[in-house]
Design a binder for these strands. Structure first.
Lengths: 258, 258
DNA sequence: ACGCATTTGTTCGTATGTATT
DNA sequence: TAATACATACGAACAAATGCG
């Protein structure tokens, strides 16, 4: 059995190390951490191929199988995408297939058609307490607020309010949002180097207020699905907070329990 | 390289075989199918240990690593649970840890407390068209309908209407439901041999109607979260259809996107 | 059109580590 | 302590998909 080589952060607490937890972690977990760091540091950009398993094995001085297991888990977490015969690629939000990973709204009948976007507002302001708490920044720090409406078949269905940390999103304007073709997360990734990895959502049923009712073309008091989303990047760092109001008259939010 | 032994269903379309698709599937996928069949047939009951990897390897005439990969996937799908040093066990709904796998409602503040259950109704009737379609039975076939209210801190929060195929649930009564300690799915599994594997949910915001408003102690028209759930067992066979109405005044439905 | 090199995918075998009883 | 079972790690070989010459 090969002893872990000195190039590995064996002395450093990796994934498995917590207070009271085990002070070691398997080799493949350490490799996973190293690969994640390179991802985070931008050594390989979204859409690019990472080195082959054999190359990585040589680089880290471990067997190919160990690299393989590390990549397996990263692929399961949607950080990497494997393609037989081609290589392993850094996941990107600009791909067709993965495009609707975060959009859970489905029409009651008919096919899923792509949404028309209308940006109502995009301005910088001091973070309200609730937003600051969610984004883990100081209350009063600058945030960018984006307000938009998504329509299907010319009918407004989603009203989104989006807050982004001003620090990471300098230069974001309504124009750039409108001009960009493709998903918003693809723009964030390409223009600001911010990659959404996963998100946590809180769903509630609420009554439409005056303003949102008008934008969604429903009567005030009409039931709307409220979806609060906190998006996280590497290291579970929050990078987006949004509140969506969905008109579920002709659509539903699909979820799979497993 | 060992050729697949005759005991394997190599000639039979397994997981990977579809119209136009490849007519073969990897060994570990075939093993996965075989294990799933034994699970379905009840060869090993929920909570029991299945044979060790070495035993299964001998039984199927493959290497331990191949069995391991099959079990890995079944564990990832929550059909099996691995425990180092002890064995691999058939997943069960009566375990503490897995108890809240299907309950997504969380309190806005405070800890998650266990719900008080109140069964309002349990009767047999002919399946309405919508229910029959969901359960893939004939309209008019017998179904069991259960209506219940879940309360937290003495306040009603969830109103559930549950439909079960009468065929599989002979002898289900309000008493048995009330008397049973533990999750309902554990009762289904223990008393009727029906194991929920996964479920698909459709969420909407709706206005409370007269009857449901009274049971949930809210005003008519109050926004409620409607949760339609179709529960599936082995082979994606539907075995439960339910519609829940959640009062999200002090709770939210949590979801993780990844 | 064909073959070849590259890369991931599958399968086997073996040895050792860690957790449980 | 010893036996058992899952977990990790290595190495080797072949299969399947892809892209290039």
């Amino acid at each position: 059995m090969a002893t872990p080589p000195s190039s590995l952060p064996n002395d450093m607490p990796a994934a498995g190390a917590e207070a009271g937890g085990p002070a070691f972690s398997p080799l493949y977990q350490q490799i996973k951490v190293l690969i994640t760091r390179s991802l985070q540091a931008g050594e390989w950009r979204p859409g690019e191929a990472i080195p082959s398993e054999v190359d990585l094995a040589a680089r880290f001085r471990v067997s190919q199988g160990t690299v393989r297991k590390a990549i397996d888990e990263l692929a399961a977490e949607n950080l990497l995408v494997r393609r037989q015969g081609k290589g392993t690629f850094v996941a990107t939000h600009s791909e067709e297939k993965i495009q609707y990973r975060f959009l859970r709204l489905m029409p009651d009948d008919g096919e899923l058609v792509s949404a028309q976007r209308r940006f109502i507002d995009c301005r910088r302001l001091r973070a309200p307490a609730e937003v600051a708490r969610a984004l883990q920044i100081r209350a009063g720090d600058t945030v960018v607020q984006v307000r938009r409406v998504l329509s299907f078949h010319e009918r407004p269905v989603i009203l989104d309010d989006i807050w982004l940390p001003g620090q990471e999103f300098k230069g974001l304007t309504a124009e750039r949002l409108s001009d960009y073709r493709g998903p918003m997360y693809a723009l964030f990734e390409a223009e600001f180097g911010v990659r959404m990895i996963r998100a946590e959502e809180k769903l509630r049923a609420v009554a439409a207020e005056e303003g949102s009712a008008e934008l969604l073309a429903v009567a005030p008091g009409h039931p709307l699905l409220s979806v609060e989303r906190l998006s996280l990047t590497y290291g579970d760092k929050p990078v987006e907070f949004r509140r969506g109001l969905y008109n579920t008259a002709a659509h539903y939010y699909r979820n799979e329990l497993s």
